[in-house]
Amino acid sequence: MTTDTAPTVAIPSVRAIRWKRRQVATARFIRAFSRYRSGLFGVGILLFFVAVAVSAPYVFPEYLLDPNANLSNSVYAPPSAEFYYWMGTDDLGRSVLAELAWGARPSLVVGILASIMAMIIGTLVGIASGHFRGFFGGSMERLTDWFLVLPFVPTVIVLQAVLGETTIWITVIVLGITSWPGTARLVRAQTLSVEARPYIERAKVLGNSDWAQMVRHILPNVMPLVIANTTLTVAIVILSMTTLAFLGLLDPNLISWGGMLDSADATGAALQGAWWFLIPPGLCVIAVVLAFTLIGRTLEVVLNPRLGSN
């Protein structure tokens, strides 16, 4: 257990000790992580897409996405040598390559924000249901069970209708609300196991408040697990978002990979042989989802010595 065996350094400042400890732990974590090629591969893909998302506005000026500005282009033009049209044009004569690049933005933003929201709700509910006994803990546990059984697409549709709009923030909220129960389950299990440890008993005996116990002892112990789990949740959320866009339930003005597939399907790209509007968006989704999955799996192994030992 690293925290217990951190090197003793003869510096009086507690802050400095903590800082040093953290440095050592981080270095060890990076070393452990980099032993896994698949994890590094995932990081590589992710960095590539982050770079694409960040640079999209500079590489692909916004007019490329504006249907009015592309009225003179032909529809479903096949890939050509000109950089902007390496991937041909879409059903409105726009550059597919530009759309692919811009499409990385909502996928990453929604995926990460909704997962963070799910992480916060899931962690709170999970810790509460694991820590508190009796009615409160029980109800938190039941709440998790209940949200687990809600059918995803109908729930999202009705939630969207209730919230009234189809903006990207509504999508984040809707996906966040529907994605937390898995995390809560996991956190609850981990909380239970942490609670069984002697030092929590000690903290209880010493009269630490519930809040102090949860924040000081339980939270640090569940956090690694939560982070690994959240990374995996991002993958699922991105898939869910793609599904919603494909069903036409996202803002149609938002350029997203799922929305591109919706347009491709609605305008018969497959039957017209316009593979460049059908295959690349799917591959982008797969790549990003795969990246988060690989990173998440590696984090799990690295952060859980039992899995990593062999």
């Binding site: 249907p67 009015n68 409105l92 036409g248 339930l249 149609p252 609605a266």
Partner: peptide
């Protein structure tokens, strides 16, 4: 625009650009 009509959505998308060109801003929802 209507959620179940691609024609409707494209029309509104294009309309937004045309309105902008004559100094009218817009928000759209499907």
């Amino acid at each position: 625009s209507r959620q179940n009509s691609k024609t409707s959505q494209t029309t509104i998308q294009l309309l937004e650009g045309w309105l902008k060109a004559i100094g009218i801003d817009s928000k759209s929802e499907s």
